[in-house]
Amino acid sequence: MSWLWISLAIVYSGSIVFLMINWSALPEKVPAHFNAAGEVDRFGPKVEMIILPIAGAFVAGLMQWIERFPEKHNYPQRLNENNVKEFYLVSRKMMNRLKNICLLFFALSSFEIITIAQGLENPLGNWLFPALIVSVAIVIVYGIIKQVKIR
């Protein structure tokens, strides 16, 4: 386990604790969806807040499981016995980074929704979703570049 994975697991767990601590202070209707500009465009019952930690755990668990089986990932035809370990390592690292980004996104989304629901200023601004897209794109492009360099 890497220090990053442990740190993100703590942040993710902290977001669940934050939700539990603030549960009684949440109004009956909380932000449930944001548009592309980062503005709330749908409110829903606060029980929907439970979906975020469950979805985050499911996605992280699924990606962790997929990461353990690099032989099942998709590779170019030039994969052979001489470069298979390099391809597997690059693919596992890419999956690990994507999993970490997802955990962070779910934690920050929960924090953002709770603070907005309590009438506080949006602490994260409107950058959360664009940052997610850019982060995922960077990880994927970096992984592809690393795979292209494998001979």
Rank of each mutant, 00 (worst) to 15 (best):
I114P: 08
T115W: 12
G143H: 03
K149W: 08
F58D: 03
I140P: 02
L52I: 12
G125N: 10
W127Y: 14
F43V: 08
R42Q: 13
K99W: 02
M63G: 05
S110R: 07
I51N: 07
N83C: 02
P123Y: 09
N83A: 05
N100D: 13
I145L: 06
E48V: 10
L62I: 14
I50S: 11
V90A: 08
L120C: 11
L89Y: 11
I133S: 03
S135K: 11
L52S: 00
S110N: 15
I50V: 14
P53W: 03
Q64N: 15
M49D: 05
G44Y: 04
N100W: 05
I101Y: 10
L79R: 02
I101D: 01
E121M: 11
E39P: 04
I66K: 12
I113K: 06
M94R: 09
Q118R: 14
E86S: 13
L98R: 03
Q118Y: 08
P53S: 05
G56P: 02
R97K: 15
L108S: 01
G61M: 04
I66W: 13
E81I: 12
L79A: 04
G125S: 10
W65Y: 12
I113Q: 04
V141H: 01
H73A: 10
E67V: 12
H73E: 04
G44K: 08
Y88G: 06
